[in-house]
Structures are given as C-alpha cells and as structure tokens.
Simulated assay, not measured.
Amino acid sequence: MVVPVLLLFLSLIGVAVALLLPGYDALLLLAVPCAIAAFILWLRAALSGKKAEPNWILIDGSNVMYWRDNTPQIETLREVIAYLKQHRHTPAVIFDANAGYLLAGKYQDDHIMAKHLGLTEDRVLVVPKGTIADSYLLTVARDFDAPIVTNDRYRDWADDYPEIAAPGRLIRGGYRDGALWLDGMKTPTPA
C-alpha cells in the first residue's frame, strides 16, 4: 500500500511542476498517466481488503466449561473466549455431543452453542453422538497448527498426535482467587 501512495504523490508533484513552471509542459505527458496509474494501483490495494491471517486457538469446550467451581458453565467459556480475543487470538470451540445436556439439560447443536458463545457457527463444533471429540480436536489442531486450551493431557492420543508434547501446544488454565489464568499468557489489562 505504501508504494502506490508514494507513486501517486510523486506523480502529482510532477503534474504540479508541469502546470506551475513555464517550460515544463511536456512533463504532463508523463506525469498525468503516471498519476492515473498510481491512483488505480492505490485503489486496488485499498479495496483488496487483505486481512491478517487468523491466529487460531482451539478450546476444548467440554473440558473448559468445568474450570469454575468444577460445574459446567457457559459463562466460563465466554470468559475464556473474551480473554483469548484480548490476546489477538481467533478462538474456535469443539464440544462433546453431550455438552448441551450438561449446560442446558437438552441437546444443543453448533448453531445454538455458537449463539450462546457469541461466535459464528463456523467456529463451533458439537461432534456427532457416539464420537470422541478428542480426535476431532487434535486433528483440527494439527490441520491449523493451533494450540488447544484445555487441562486434558491427551495421553491416550500421544502416539497418533506426537505434536501435543511440544511446548505451548496444550495451554492449561483455570481460576485462582476468582480470576482466570492461562499458562503462558499475561493477564489482559482492562480497556
């Protein structure tokens, strides 16, 4: 984006010189097309809307929902999500199929859980009944090279997913004196 702006600026200086100083009229033949081309380049760069790659982080929803008082609570997940967003992460949550029963007494699909969490549906997955969420979670973490927020160590999966032993891959957390903490992350300062 800097190069098109610089080219536009220099081209406009050339146009100004050609218009203001006698004997430089021929400079208009070069400066005007350059200014138009630089403006088009700047406009394309501005409208391309390139966004930074998401800084993905997965949340083991069925584990994290128990962090406060050892009872399943949607508020705990909301707080963890807010915490991660403050640290410029893009959180996604994966739940066991029974999570809705534990939180609300009835089945809740991706759409409903996403709504409760304030996330888009594409960032929440409730695995199908009879499926182990750990395999989904570990596969997605591998595919996106993302860490997982959980207190589970996934020891049964270590042979199939050796990367979980890497430092920072599994982020432990919980509450101390009523305050949320996550390993390796500083407490966010209030806005």
Rank of each mutant, 00 (worst) to 15 (best):
V5Y: 04
L6H: 09
L8D: 02
L8I: 07
F9K: 13
A16G: 11
A16P: 06
V17Q: 06
A18Q: 06
A18G: 06
L20V: 09
L20P: 00
D25H: 14
A26I: 14
L27Y: 09
L28C: 07
L28H: 03
L29F: 13
A31D: 07
A31R: 08
A31H: 10
P33I: 11
C34F: 15
I36A: 11
F39C: 14
L43T: 01
A46W: 15
S48M: 14
S48Q: 15
A52E: 15
E53H: 12
N55G: 09
N55S: 11
I59H: 01
D60V: 01
D60R: 04
G61L: 03
S62T: 11
S62P: 11
N63S: 09
V64S: 03
M65E: 12
M65N: 12
M65F: 12
M65W: 05
P72K: 02
P72M: 04
P72L: 01
P72Y: 00
Q73C: 09
E75P: 01
T76R: 05
E79G: 02
V80M: 01
V80P: 06
V80W: 05
I81T: 05
L84G: 07
K85E: 11
Q86W: 07
V93E: 10
V93C: 10
V93F: 01
V93P: 02
I94S: 08
F95W: 09
L102F: 08
L103E: 08
L103Q: 07
A104W: 06
A104T: 02
K106N: 09
Q108W: 01
Q108V: 00
D109A: 03
H111Y: 06
H111L: 14
I112T: 14
M113I: 02
H116L: 13
H116A: 13
G118S: 03
G118M: 06
L119C: 07
D122V: 06
R123T: 01
V124C: 04
V124M: 05
V126T: 07
V126N: 09
V126P: 01
V127Q: 04
P128K: 10
P128H: 10
I132N: 15
S135C: 08
L138P: 00
L138V: 11
T139C: 00
R142V: 03
R142F: 05
D143K: 08
D143W: 02
D143I: 04
D145S: 14
A146E: 09
P147V: 06
P147N: 02
I148Y: 00
V149T: 03
N151F: 11
N151D: 07
D152Q: 05
R153G: 13
R153L: 15
Y154R: 07
R155Y: 14
R155M: 14
D159N: 13
Y161P: 00
Y161A: 05
P162T: 02
I164D: 01
I164V: 15
A166N: 15
P167M: 08
R169M: 11
R169N: 04
I171P: 05
I171Y: 05
G178H: 02
A179F: 07
W181T: 08
L182M: 12
L182A: 07
A191V: 12
A191S: 15
